[in-house]
Amino acid sequence: MSPSTAAAPSPLPAYVYKILPEAPPEPLPSEYPLSELDRNDGFVHLSTATQVPKTADLFFAEATSLWLLKLPLAGIAGATRWEGPEGGPFPHLYGNFGAREVEGAREFSRAEGETWSAALERQGGWLV
């Protein structure tokens, strides 16, 4: 079942983020290796800054560290659709990205029993 198209947020965010369960390859390749989920769904799952904490809490609850890649939306806007159910719309990149589209990468960690929402707020300032 394909995701439902939704209206893009207004105003559009300057950045979207790819959540990774481990460190990205260094140097970043020109074509980032797609996760199994992204390959199967046919698009790259991305999140806005406000969606990252909840997405991390839902899908990475067992992880004690995560990496975020920061992508300027302007560089991928033409291939990005805003789709999804509640909590959306989520940015879905139909295609791929690589080193040229990534402005930054950062590791985040959380303490035992701490939610990702709390950990990201504590280590704030990078999500915009």
Rank of each mutant, 00 (worst) to 15 (best):
S35R: 06
H92V: 13
G87Q: 11
V44Y: 00
R110D: 05
A111D: 15
A63R: 15
P91Y: 06
L58W: 10
R106K: 15
W67I: 00
T48M: 05
W67Y: 12
E22S: 15
A56Q: 01
P85R: 12
L68H: 03
L73M: 10
G84E: 14
R81L: 15
E83L: 13
I76H: 06
A23F: 08
G88I: 10
D38F: 14
R81W: 07
P27E: 02
D57P: 01
D38C: 15
P25I: 07
D41Q: 11
E26Q: 15
F43T: 10
A61W: 12
L71S: 04
A79I: 03
G75I: 07
P29W: 00
D57Y: 08
K70S: 07
G42A: 06
V16N: 02
P29A: 02
L37W: 13
L71K: 06
W67H: 12
L34E: 10
T50L: 11
A105Q: 06
T50G: 05
P25R: 01
P85E: 11
A49G: 02
E62H: 15
L71C: 08
V102H: 00
L28V: 02
L71A: 08
A79T: 10
A105M: 01
L68Q: 02
T55I: 12
P27Q: 01
G104K: 07
L69K: 02
E83F: 14
I76K: 14
K70Q: 11
F90D: 06
S47V: 05
P91K: 04
E26T: 15
T48N: 10
H92W: 09
P53E: 02
P25S: 00
L37M: 07
D41V: 08
D41T: 13
V52T: 03
A49T: 01
V44T: 09
T48I: 03
S35D: 10
E103D: 06
G95H: 05
L28T: 01
A79Y: 07
G104P: 04
L93N: 05
F97R: 03
G75V: 13
L34Q: 08
A63K: 15
E62C: 13
V52G: 03
T80C: 03
Y17K: 04
P25E: 12
V44Q: 07
S47L: 08
P91T: 04
V16W: 04
A63T: 11
N96C: 04
Q51N: 03
E107Q: 09
P89S: 06
P29G: 01
G84P: 11
Y15F: 13
F43G: 09
P91E: 05
S35A: 12
N40W: 14
S65P: 07
H92R: 15
T50Q: 08
G87N: 13
L34V: 07
E107M: 01
S65C: 08
H92E: 14
R110L: 05
G87M: 09
E36H: 07
L66H: 08
E107F: 04
E26P: 13
E107A: 05
P33M: 01
A105P: 00
K70A: 11
E31N: 14
E26R: 15
D57H: 07
F97V: 04
H92L: 11
V52N: 00
